[in-house]
Design a protein around this nucleic acid. Structure first.
Lengths: 150, 150
DNA sequence: CAGCAGATGTAGCCGAGGCTACATTTCTCG
DNA sequence: CGAGAAATGTAGCCTCGGCTACATCTGCTG
């Protein structure tokens, strides 16, 4: 990328590509957190089932996450989150919940919302997330009970 | 993927991964359309600048799009869209505009909206898109002029 | 307490999408 | 017209995230 001209538009695409890289980490870390919470422990096989990939893929990705100090594990042992991993998981989870609630709030049906939130969340920047939260707060003000129109 | 159990959650991740594949095609086809519209023609170098990648990457991707009958080109010649490509570009463009307008409508600042829309649009399903359009229609009703609060 | 089933790990392949370095073509301009 | 610069193409390498097939380990159970 020596001195090549890079349009202003380009930075957005570059940003999107960069997001892709962190997506995997976030998704896995979030899944590990969920599994630990729900099953007491997180095994490779569980992750494979949740992510819909083969156990081999899980193993390779977990190895990288371990190098990145996000998870901790030993051969044939369960996977746990490091403090860094916990923090990332918490952030991802938060964003996920906001996006999901937001989609529901604008009337997207449950299943479609879940599907789209999964893909969208990684591209929702802080500003956008803040706007979604503001919007949600507004909705809650107007409709305090659990009676949101669908 | 023989008989492995795949959780209900998994289908969402699989869906997200599948989306990734079409992303490139959509982005490039959209970019080709823009360049043709603005510059009169689309050259490899322009695409490289717009997408923020090297010309080599562009060439390989364009070759695939040509096999997919989305673009037409010859060595050392400009790139044009096939009818199929035009249709895809139009759809992508439409979705892009809706998402961008929607983000603006909920108060996301211009630049952040552009950035996030780029990544989000490919994960916005039809149901969600429809909800965004409905929302936009509502906003336009309440604020008919160009006076949207930012 | 031995074996077997199931979970995990290893080897090696694939395609997508990045890259650099080098080769070739166009095309402009002196 | 014919050079040289700019654009395009080719070769070959990388990482990531898929996969299958095969090897190894664990832990339960007969």
């Amino acid at each position: 990328m020596t001195g090549r001209k890079r349009s202003r538009v380009a930075v957005r695409f570059v940003k999107t590509r960069d997001d892709h890289r962190s997506e995997t980490a976030e998704d896995y870390v979030e899944a590990v957190a969920d599994l630990v919470r729900l099953h007491g422990e997180c095994r490779v096989r569980d992750l494979a089932a949740v992510m819909g990939v083969s156990h081999v893929t899980v193993i390779r990705i977990i190895a990288r996450l371990q190098e990145a100090a996000l998870v901790e594990t030993a051969p044939y042992r369960p996977i746990t989150l490091t403090p860094r991993g916990e923090r990332l998981a918490a952030r991802a989870r938060h964003r996920h919940e906001i996006v999901l609630a937001f989609l529901a709030a604008i009337g997207v049906p449950e299943e479609a919302a879940r599907r789209d939130a999964e893909g969208m969340e990684h591209h929702v920047g802080d500003r956008t997330l803040a706007c979604m939260e503001t919007f949600l707060a507004g909705v809650r003000d107007r409709v305090p009970a659990k009676e949101r129109d669908v």
